[in-house]
Design a protein around this nucleic acid. Sequence first.
RNA 1: GGAGAGAUGGCCGAGUGGACUAAGGCGCUCGACUCGAAAUCGAGUAGGCGGGCAAAACCCGCCUCGUGGGUUCGAAUCCCACUCUCUCCGCCA
Length: 428
Amino acid sequence: MLDLKFIRRQPEEVKEALRRRGYPENLVDELLAVDARWREKLTYLQELRSEHNRVSEEIARRKQAGDEAAELIAAMRDLSSRIEELAKEVGALERELQERLLEIPNIPHPSVPYGEDAEDNVEIRRWGEPRRFSFPPRPHWEIGEITGVLDFARGVKVAGTRFVFYRGLGAALERALINFMLDLHTREHGYEEVFPPFLVNRESMVGTGQLPKFAEDMFKVEGEDYYLIPTAEVPVTNLHREEILDGDRLPLKYVAYSACFRAEAGAAGRETRGLIRQHQFNKVELVKFCRPEQSEEELEKLVADAEEVLQRLGLPYRVVVLCTGDLGFAAAKTYDIEVWLPSYGAYKEISSCSNFGDFQARRANIRYRPHPKAKAAFVHTLNGSGLAVGRTVAAILENYQEEDGSVVIPPALRPYMGGVERIPAQAR
RNA sequence: GGAGAGAUGGCCGAGUGGACUAAGGCGCUCGACUCGAAAUCGAGUAGGCGGGCAAAACCCGCCUCGUGGGUUCGAAUCCCACUCUCUCCGCCA
């Protein structure tokens, strides 16, 4: 959420941001029109209330003195009903204002390149060389089938399309990756591990920006105020909702494993095969809370922490910065890390690292004191995948495959796999 | 799920319809005293919103005693619903 006062003062700047994102810019004028009406009525309402308070005190005074107050009470009856009516109007305007405010996206950071869609994202750097295969490499779903470590058919039977069973060494590989990533980030990168709830309430979803605008993207428990988290970003960022953090302890750095649940509405037909787009997947997520002046640097460090995972696993990747048109609703700046997938013959997103500025902090009311006596100010929040586990499995199966269908386990993972060095062609 | 108790400022805690403009204490900040500290004494200690005003300081006003409604001229206080916490019972990994 943007600062309403900022929108009032700099409407042109906000419109420009909307233009660059490809949003309709009249959102701003519409919001400001509601704001003007709200303030006008609110001022009047407050005047009436002030009058009401004065008369009320006068009545009390007279009653104490044993005097008559009947005519004042009669006048108050009228005043009270006018206040009640006006308060309803003000309340309605306030709700409308709030709704509109929640639907305005964040302002892109000045360093974000202009562009209309993903085509215009800008590559920043590459790491590693894609392997040259002496045989035609198989896509990971075929490898999963040959080795028996992925069971898509039974995932569909038991749950539905876009669900999968990991089996045997596949399940072990998934678990090994989670532990490997958590250990790396806690022991070497200084993050505190948290294990969050996988269901959260509506307020948390609003806090990080999934609601109210993107309700169709997620699963909700019927009849309850529970939403399945699309990412651990939601519970972990909301960990400090409605709190004032100790400025001396910033930045706070958390790493969380969670399952993630996405409805994938609008993705029908896309990437229906394999692990790339599932309704449920595992992810290790990095979340930071920091001072505003730290957030640009913290984003760079966060990306580096996520890249480290791929480097240790020996998986080639590149880093791109998202252009204004591809930037997520709440983000001010986002780097995607894309891993090389031989079956795609292309780099595919495996991590998305964003700086949200104070956008989420304002929604979720997460603040800190710059100085012990200073007024509380909004923190900046950041998060990024470190990494998406299912896509990492896909990348390992494809990049480490052998001609016979077997898969070599990256050396860094072997301690987490009980020393297993290879998934044999027929693992089951 | 059932029964009971409770929710008041950073914390504890008083408050059964009009002086609550929320007592008192603790903590914290500043000052006095002291060589310094402790003790003591004094003062100050919530947030949000609107306006003055373009902004800071400041001033005025409004709102907030778990949340939302209701009664009343007037609600921390009375009524209803909900949320959460605690105790006991039931169920459960």
